[in-house]
Amino acid sequence: MEQKQLDQLSTDLFRPAAGRGDLEQIGRPSLSYWKDAWLRLRKNKGAIFGLIVVIVLTALAIFAPMASKNDYHTQNLSLSKLPPKIPVLEKVSFLHVDGKDKDGFDVYKAKNIKENYWFGTDDLGRDQWVRVWQGTRISLLIAVAAALIDLGIGIIYGGVSGFYGGKVDNIMMRIIEILIGIPQLILVILFILIFKPGVSSIILAMIITGWTGMARIVRGQMLKMKEQEFVMASKTLGAANSRLIGKHLIPNILGPIIVTTMFTVPGAIFTEAFLSFIGLGIAPPQASLGSLVNDGFRFLQTYPYLLIIPSIIISLLILSFNLLGDGLRDALDPKMRK
């Protein structure tokens, strides 16, 4: 545009536009912390996959054993080592869930068995479908219980340490440092040797060293919070306080706690399985995912489904918790919030 055109601009345009500017600019609509976190989590495909799988597997672990007319411990040798047979999926050849053994021999027909064992049966004729979900239930129970107790101890210990600070904090942290130096495995093994394998002794063994991580995190957050308190007290009074606590402190402290707990669960599932392998796991006839995988190895060459199915479930479970944990960490990190 030339000078000429500039001159043709209406003089009206050159009136002061008082009040048109939004000096009181509208900030970005302030979503609540949790809503914001949820929005971010929802965008993370891996985390949503993890969340769904965790929910589905948990539901199966709770309801599948109840819904079946078989139970996990009744043996029936006449039904032993039946390959898996799943009604509709049996048509899909590569899944090998057609009731035929590895030589293509239809065991169900031969033995004239009408019932379908979806995951087959084990060497003692127990319904593997029920055993797998019962095992998942035990594994989840152990892992979630260990994670929750870790959380409880960690919050108390870390809270006290961080709250009092100074000498108390110093001593309490030294104790943790020494505990961390002791290999977890050693403690767990010694502990179970003494108290004999079982759900509660396994949980306890995992807690002995497990709580330290949570305690450190809670302490760190506690120290940070104490710093902020001064700022808060001087800046805001009365009603605004509760809002600040809700908006800043709780998310700051809850975020890392939730994420740590999320990562404790898969770790505990793994440790439980590991104990089964070294002969310190759940005792039969009870089953956990670890003990099922361990037992499965005996039939690797002959009845691989006894190994493969629980292996897939345990991997899927650990994977899902890890994905969910990763997603939550990204979603809950207040630093990422612009």
Binding site: L6, L9, D12, L13, F14, R15, P16, A17, A18, R20, G21, D22, L23, Q25
Partner: peptide, 18 residues
């Protein structure tokens, strides 16, 4: 700068200044 300027004119919300 118009939204923050107390000197803003009507034209500032329509055309970029040269």
């Amino acid at each position: 700068f118009a939204p923050r300027s107390s000197y803003a004119l009507e034209i500032d919300f329509e055309h970029e200044p040269p």
